[in-house]
Design a protein around this nucleic acid. Structure first.
Lengths: 192, 192
DNA sequence: TGCGGTATGTTTACGGTGCTCACATGAGCG
DNA sequence: CGCTCATGTGAGCACCGTAAACATACCGCA
């Protein structure tokens, strides 16, 4: 299935092949091109246009898949967070996802306006809701929207700062530790 | 000076012209190319290579300038922050800069590794220090590094989430309000 | 004053990109 | 069996970043 039967002229599963090839490229080196994907799939340079209107459309499909993967990372094998520490772990998982698949992460979030892809906006909304529910569950007394935004931004910002080398640390474990520490520090700050 | 004397063959001030043209393009529509800059300056497509090794080098120069501008935004006409509210205003200024000049902001921060440009790394370090000093000044009791990272990440994350349309609001004022609210919310959260 | 070196700009060229359009193929349905 | 239409092909356009060889003219030195 996935390794498609090539009967010659028709590929049989081009759309899926293109997406998995793109995903693999994103996770190894970075820059993929439609033409490279076509090459990879053993198909002419313009064949991808039969399945995606343009590059953005393909990226939106990748982004939607990535957002689903991220959601899975944040939920699977994890109870709903019940404490500040649990929230910290959620942030760690978020950042680790970004660092494990940085090019994908940029595709997922680094696009201004693409209300076109319903699949994608839905996937993004689910991430938002997930974080909002988590935050308000632990801190029911605080303005829910504001707190959810703050939590998301904190994780998102750390992800970008480490991805782009603005913050640095030796190992993934150390980064996780610092994310936890940052989360704890800002929660502790109000004490005064 | 800035509007250079064009004596014909030699431009007289190409490097500066390229940078200001690039900056203007970044602030209007987005995508600039070396060739477009050359066209703009009325010069051959490869002339820019006399002043910048490659596209990255030019972007680094832009980034350094942008970082200096950001620092100015965060300091000029502003006392050193003395309260949590002051820190919130700092975050608002940070986000507003990103939203006012999003393409520049991406150039400033959206590069993995470019230890090549001394000018640039220095400018980035100054931003880091600025925020660290501000945070530890207001909250001297908390782990300084962790808190500085958290504050930076919070502002940085909100900047990216609004830039990329993952969070939305009607007006700039409203965004500022939400940044303040987010900052306040996460500081209030520990109270429980 | 004249001359030569060098910084700056030009020309040409290569390989890559996204994308469009006209055409070819063949799988699936009547 | 034959048609249709989704799918794949091919040639071609305009653009990009970059390199190499060449042209110009500014500047400092004899």
């Amino acid at each position: 299935m996935s390794t498609s039967e090539k009967s010659g002229y028709h590929h049989g599963d081009l759309r899926a092949s293109l997406l998995t090839a793109a995903m693999r490229m994103l996770e190894e080196g970075e820059p993929f091109s439609l033409r490279a994907l076509a090459r990879e799939a053993g198909v002419s340079p313009t064949a991808p246009y039969r399945h995606f209107k343009d590059r953005d459309a393909l990226e939106s499909a990748l982004a939607a898949q990535g957002l689903r993967d991220l959601k899975a990372d944040l939920t699977e094998g994890r109870e709903l967070p019940a404490s500040a520490a649990d929230l910290g772990e959620l942030a760690v998982a978020y950042v680790e996802f970004a660092l494990r698949r940085p090019a994908l992460f940029r595709v997922m979030f680094g696009n201004a306006c693409d209300t076109g892809s319903a699949e994608r906006v839905e996937a993004a909304a689910e991430i938002h809701d997930l974080l909002a529910v988590a935050m308000t569950r632990v801190f029911p007394d605080v303005d829910a929207d504001a707190l959810a935004s703050a939590g998301w931004a904190l994780a998102h910002g750390m992800a970008y700062l480490y991805m782009d080398g603005k913050l640095q640390a030796g190992s993934t474990e150390e980064i996780g530790e610092r994310v936890r520490a940052a989360f704890a520090a800002i929660l502790a700050a109000s004490a005064d």
